[in-house]
Design a protein around this nucleic acid. Structure first.
Length: 359
DNA sequence: CTTCCACCGGAAGTACCGGTAA
DNA sequence: TTACCGGTACTTCCGGTGGAAG
């Protein structure tokens, strides 16, 4: 946080600060640290009469260039319709606003790597260049990325401008997670409910799995709920292991339920074909899908689109595939369920498909 | 060594939606 | 009213391709 503070400090002296690139996996405290630091700066700025505005954008959640810019514009007090304007128009309005006032502006672009992968670095380039044309206002950009190879996606000009400073957040070690958990245990549980062994177990599981503090806390909470429901006075190691499974199953269930119709149909096909014929090929899946769709009197998607949906299912981890080569008989992917079948079935059952699935 | 299958996946185009600006 | 915007969800077209069969 001190590091980030030092980078941003020039904003308080009405100077242009360096842009920064921040790396770190999810749950390592990037967002919290930036928000905290920026609040401190905002306080100081108030005392000095500097007009400081922080705009935090999660680029992945916003999804598109237009909406990313819209969020920045709104932080500056502009109202931007959610559609209708040209993207460049939004950028123009932002620059106009900054040109006609004196603002120290910090733009935080979270999960920018995901964004750049689908939209390229044009937007980043334009944002980094904005300072040059602004006489009175200053803009600092902090780009936050989950993975380090992100650099390779950037044009050298953008990269050099963006990486004037770099900060890296390492995943938490088991010891660090232990500290974090311990601090929360004393707030959230009665004395003696959570033993050191349980904290150690949760910390060890989390550190080896992901090093994500948020998920570690979640794991402990779920374990606590399980123990409570079982009428226990203390959380046991078994509760923790059960919690691991439960969290996983709940995630699978949620993902399945929120899938669009045709993805769910495909998942149902993979599930039912997988039973008799262990690992159907993409061609077989498509044929069964066609039959299913015909039976349900639904419009049918093309093979191309179906292949894309199957890829998406694989991406979210519900399905896994292996390419196999049959020589003269071509090449194909064999697909099967990668997630626990139980929550998948439960999620699909709340649907029209029940009848078809039972065949 | 060549052939040829059963797909893969990039690219461009279409239709529609809900909107703005002049 | 007209021209145009971006986003989503698809379709159409088509040039690959790994490796066993032949």
């Amino acid at each position: 946080m001190r590091n980030i503070g030092e980078i941003l400090a020039p904003l308080l002296m009405n100077k242009k600060p360096s842009n920064a690139l921040i790396y770190g996996k999810t749950g390592t405290g990037k967002t919290a640290s930036i928000k905290f630091t920026s609040n401190v700066i905002e306080e100081k700025a108030k005392g000095r009469g500097t007009n400081f505005i922080m705009s935090y954008v999660n680029c992945r959640l916003e999804g598109t260039e237009y909406r990313t810019l819209a969020v920045i514009a709104e932080a500056l007090g502009l109202t931007i319709p959610f559609t209708g304007l040209a993207t460049n128009e939004v950028l123009k309005r932002i620059t106009e606003k900054l040109r006609h006032s004196e603002i120290s502006c910090l733009i935080v672009l979270d999960e920018v790597d995901v964004f750049v992968r689908s939209y390229g670095d044009d937007l980043l380039y334009q944002l980094t260049r904005m300072n040059e044309t602004l006489p009175t206002s200053r803009v600092a950009i902090i780009a936050v990325s989950n993975d380090i190879s992100f650099k390779e996606l950037l044009d050298p000009r953008v990269l050099s401008s963006l990486s004037e400073e770099e900060v890296i957040f390492k995943p938490y070690t088991a010891d660090e997670i232990k500290d974090i958990l311990q601090a929360r245990v004393s707030l959230g549980f009665n004395d003696g409910v959570v033993s050191h062994e349980v904290v150690n177990l949760v910390a060890a599981l989390s550190a080896s799995e992901h090093g994500d503090a948020r998920r570690a806390l979640n794991l402990l909470r779920v374990a606590g709920e399980i123990a409570e429901r079982a009428g226990l006075l203390k959380i046991t190691a078994a509760n923790v292991r059960e919690a691991v499974l439960k969290i996983e199953e709940d995630q699978v269930f949620e993902i399945c339920r929120s899938l669009p119709l045709h993805s769910r149909l495909l998942l149902a096909v993979v599930l039912s074909l997988g039973k008799k014929n262990k690992a159907p090929t993409s061609g077989e899946i498509f044929t069964s899908y066609k039959q299913l769709v015909e039976k349900l009197k639904l419009p049918e998607l093309t093979y191309r689109r179906v292949a894309m949906l199957l890829n998406e299912l694989e991406m979210v981890g519900l399905v896994e595939s292996k390419t196999v080569n049959l020589g003269r008989h071509g090449r194909t992917r064999k697909m099967r369920l990668a997630a626990a079948s139980d929550p998948v079935r439960r999620a699909l059952q709340s649907d029209v498909l029940v009848a078809q699935l039972l065949e």
